[in-house]
Simulated assay, not measured.
Amino acid sequence: MPLAEIPLCVWRKRSRTFVFRGQSIRYWTVGQGEPLLLIHGFPTASWDWHYLWQPLAQRYQVIACDMLGFGDSAKPRNHTYSLLEQADLQQALLAHLQVEQAVHILAHDYGDSVAQELLARHYEKRIEVASCVFLNGGLFPETHRPLLMQKLLLSPIGWLLGRAFSREALVKGFRQIFGPQTQPTESELDDYWSLVDSNHGPRILHKLITYIPERRVQRERWVTAMQQGDIPLRVIDGAFDPISGVHMVERYRELIPDADTVLLPGIGHYPQTEAPVLVLKHYLAFRDRLVLPPRKVAYS
């Protein structure tokens, strides 16, 4: 049975706001139970999770925000964006919501890198993570295959391309990374573009894209954290994805002991919207195997 969508106009009305380092951040939370933090990818926003939102809320306290520079959150122009700061933001949101239990994480794309940073901080005793599931993302810089537009945004003319970035450019990129039978509709593309374009988003794309070299700097620390084995991990990956599909999962299996991976044939880079029923099934199966008592955690 297909999962019900939450229209973007409804999603936006349900948002709340808190201030992080002087910037307005939109966030959403629903449900009760163990806290589950959903972390979205580039260049979209937390609406990416809308198919899974209510089903997950039947079991967990589900939490998500539009990260700084994304969606309907603030997009300061003269700002140095960093994955490390986005991890700070996630911790600030948990503190704002007075979450004291160890947190479970479900992340995608750019959000995978933020989740990797939170895993590293777990071992540094700066947060307590109960489990983590990654959807398609650049977990290893050596397997990440960026689109041409991403490469150009990183170039010296990136600022110019960002200013000229349009709905047509977004559609062209999305057509390449979604599965052949799971392409977004025109209405969905309108909504994705609305989130990217909100608060003059295209003008900072060249600043956000610096996450790609930042991943290389943090690689050893992040991979070491994933190799520890103390935190249950799973990868649920759209196999058709040209950016981080089968080739990324093969590398994951090489590097991560007892690798728990699920490949979704024919599904592209956005499995949570292309195949939400399958993602929900495999996520809940992963969680059903876990028997973790609630734990208190102090944030510093």
Rank of each mutant, 00 (worst) to 15 (best):
I63E: 05
E186H: 00
R175F: 02
W47V: 00
R126V: 09
E188F: 05
Y110Q: 02
H269R: 07
V129E: 12
G162K: 03
S244G: 01
Q228E: 14
L205V: 07
L264E: 07
P242Y: 06
W11F: 09
I243H: 00
V279Q: 04
I209V: 11
R219S: 10
Q181P: 00
A239K: 04
E254H: 09
T224W: 06
Y51C: 04
P276K: 02
R167N: 07
R219F: 08
L189P: 00
R253K: 15
D190L: 02
P7R: 01
V291A: 14
L93S: 11
I267W: 01
Y299Q: 15
Q58P: 02
L93M: 15
L205R: 00
A130S: 14
V133E: 11
L37P: 09
L233Y: 02
D112Y: 05
Y27G: 00
Y110V: 06
P55T: 08
R216C: 01
T44W: 03
T29K: 09
Q228V: 06
L119F: 01
R12T: 13
D191Q: 15
H200T: 09
W193D: 03
H122A: 12
S194W: 08
S131A: 15
L52A: 11
A95L: 12
R287E: 07
L135M: 13
D258K: 09
A169R: 14
V262W: 01
D191T: 13
Q272M: 12
S46C: 14
G268I: 03
P294I: 10
R14P: 01
E220R: 07
C9S: 05
D190Q: 06
K13T: 01
S113R: 12
P76E: 00
E214Y: 00
Q61W: 12
D66V: 14
L233C: 05
W47R: 03
E124H: 09
N78K: 03
L255Q: 14
V277C: 15
Q272F: 04
Y252G: 03
V297P: 01
V279W: 08
A92M: 07
C65L: 15
N78E: 08
H122K: 10
R14Q: 04
P213K: 08
G179C: 13
I204N: 01
L170P: 03
W11I: 01
T182M: 06
P294W: 03
R221Q: 10
V291R: 12
I231P: 10
I212M: 10
A115W: 07
M226D: 04
Q98S: 13
F240C: 09
Q150C: 08
P180Y: 06
Q218H: 15
D260G: 04
D109H: 08
A239W: 07
L255W: 00
F174G: 00
S24L: 03
K296E: 15
D88S: 06
P55D: 12
Q61D: 04
L89V: 09
Q23E: 13
T182R: 00
E124P: 06
A64R: 02
R145Y: 09
Y299K: 12
V217A: 14
